[in-house]
Simulated assay, not measured.
Amino acid sequence: MQINVNGIDTRYVLSNEGGGPWLTFIHQLGGDLSIWDQLAGYFRDDYTVLRYDVRGHGKTSVSNQQFSVADLSQDLRGLFDALGVEKTHIVGMSMGGMIAQQFALDDPARIDTLTLCDTHAATPPEGRALWDERAATVRRDGTKALAQATMERWLTAGFRNSHPEVVEQIREVFENTSSEGYAHACTALRDFDVRSRLNEVALPTLAVAGRHDAGTPPAATQAIANAIRNARFELLDAAHLAPIEQSQRFTALLESFLQKRV
């Protein structure tokens, strides 16, 4: 389905076989809503599951102007308004986790629970140049230039070797991501910083990290959990896409977390 949100033609998928509480999934940089296919299939019998392509990703339009994570949070608000979502559980991974943090600060009353995966609350000063380099690379050579290194960073060698079909699907989505959309998002993530405000978040929060995540070290996700009152932190035997690599374990964690609060 397509809908116009803040002037951006936005793709979303709604699965509401169960007609239960809303559950919203937000994907990573260089991904799209398909990363959540398996999880959406599992939860759709008990929840109204919403997935969407973030601005500049998948089949959602590319913005002509630079945007911030705060703008992406407003996109999410616009999507909720258009679909009549009054309150939802939110699960965000990597970039999706940053959007989720920002939305929790912007519209906390619209969130039931917050699940943050393999994400951080700010780019450290020494990491800012990396985002600029990635943006420059994809503008010059396209996202394919970063694909192999990204797959190696996102998923452990063991998983890549045993699940080549999953890796191929994730890689294909990454390589088909708009270069300009990816570059704009790199700049948005470079400038994201909500560390000083996380103590304002009073929502039930589950933070999940991959033990082998080199790009976003587990300590960064744990720092978010430490800053949010009564947040729970879980470490999985995975790299950056922990909910995908350890899908069964993550599904069990999320199901238990949600059931306690439905």
Rank of each mutant, 00 (worst) to 15 (best):
Gly58Thr: 11
Val49Leu: 04
Val173Trp: 02
Trp36Ala: 04
Thr24Trp: 02
His89Ser: 09
Met95Tyr: 14
Glu175Ala: 11
Ser178Met: 02
Val5Phe: 05
Asn199Glu: 09
Pro204Lys: 12
Gly20Ala: 07
Glu175Thr: 14
His27Thr: 03
Ile26Thr: 06
Ala223Glu: 07
Asp118Thr: 00
Gly18Ala: 05
Ala100Tyr: 06
Ser63Ile: 02
Ala82Phe: 06
Gly158Gln: 05
Leu14Ile: 07
Asp75Met: 05
Ile3His: 14
Gly215Pro: 01
Ala136Lys: 14
Ile224Met: 05
Phe233Gly: 01
Tyr52Ser: 10
Gly158Pro: 06
Arg55Val: 00
Gly7Pro: 07
Ser247His: 15
Asp106Gln: 15
Leu116Arg: 00
Arg77Leu: 14
Gly181Lys: 02
Ala122Met: 02
Ala227Glu: 10
Ala225Phe: 01
Ser68Val: 13
Val262Arg: 15
Glu255Phe: 02
Leu105Asp: 08
Phe43Pro: 03
Arg160His: 10
Ile170Glu: 01
Cys186His: 08
Leu155Val: 05
Ser196Leu: 04
Ala157Ser: 06
Ala223Ser: 14
Val13Arg: 13
Glu126Val: 14
Tyr182Phe: 15
Ala220Arg: 08
Ala231Leu: 08
Gly7Val: 02
Ala225Trp: 11
His184Phe: 09
Thr205Leu: 05
Asp45Ala: 15
Ser179Gln: 01
Ala207Val: 09
Gly56Arg: 08
Glu133Tyr: 03
Met98Lys: 07
Leu76Trp: 10
Gly84Tyr: 13
Asp132Ala: 13
Gly30Glu: 00
Leu105Asn: 12
Pro124Thr: 09
Arg197Ser: 09
Leu76Ile: 09
Ala135Asp: 13
Ala223Asp: 03
Gln101Lys: 00
Val194Gly: 00
Ala185Arg: 01
Arg229Cys: 03
Pro108Phe: 10
Leu130Thr: 13
Gly96Thr: 12
Ile170Ala: 09
Arg44Ile: 07
Thr88Lys: 02
Leu206Gly: 09
Ala40Ser: 15
Thr48Gln: 10
Glu180Met: 06
Pro243Met: 02
Leu14Phe: 11
Gln74Lys: 15
Pro218Val: 07
Lys260Ala: 14
Arg77Tyr: 08
Val85Arg: 12
Thr24Ala: 05
Leu29Pro: 03
Ser68Leu: 08
Gln38Ile: 12
Thr187Ser: 02
Asn199Tyr: 03
Ala149Ser: 14
Glu255Asn: 11
Ala223Gln: 04
Ser61Thr: 03
Arg197Cys: 00
Lys260Glu: 15
Pro108Asp: 09
Asn16Arg: 08
Thr221His: 08
Gln28Pro: 01
Pro125Asp: 14
Gly78Trp: 05
Arg249Leu: 01
His240Leu: 06
Val166Glu: 00
Trp154Ser: 07
Thr177Val: 10
Ala147Thr: 14
Leu235Asn: 03
Trp36Arg: 04
Ala214His: 07
Leu14Met: 13
Gln66Ile: 04
Ser178Glu: 03
Met93Gln: 13
Ser256Asn: 14
Thr221Ala: 06
Asn4Cys: 03
Asp107Met: 15
Phe257Ile: 10
Thr123Lys: 06
His120Val: 04
Arg134Pro: 08
Asn230Gly: 00
Lys59Ile: 04
Asp112Lys: 09
Leu258Cys: 06
Val49Phe: 11
Gln2Ala: 05
Arg139Lys: 13
Gln65Asn: 13
Val262Thr: 13
Ala145Arg: 07
Ser34Arg: 14
Thr187Asn: 08
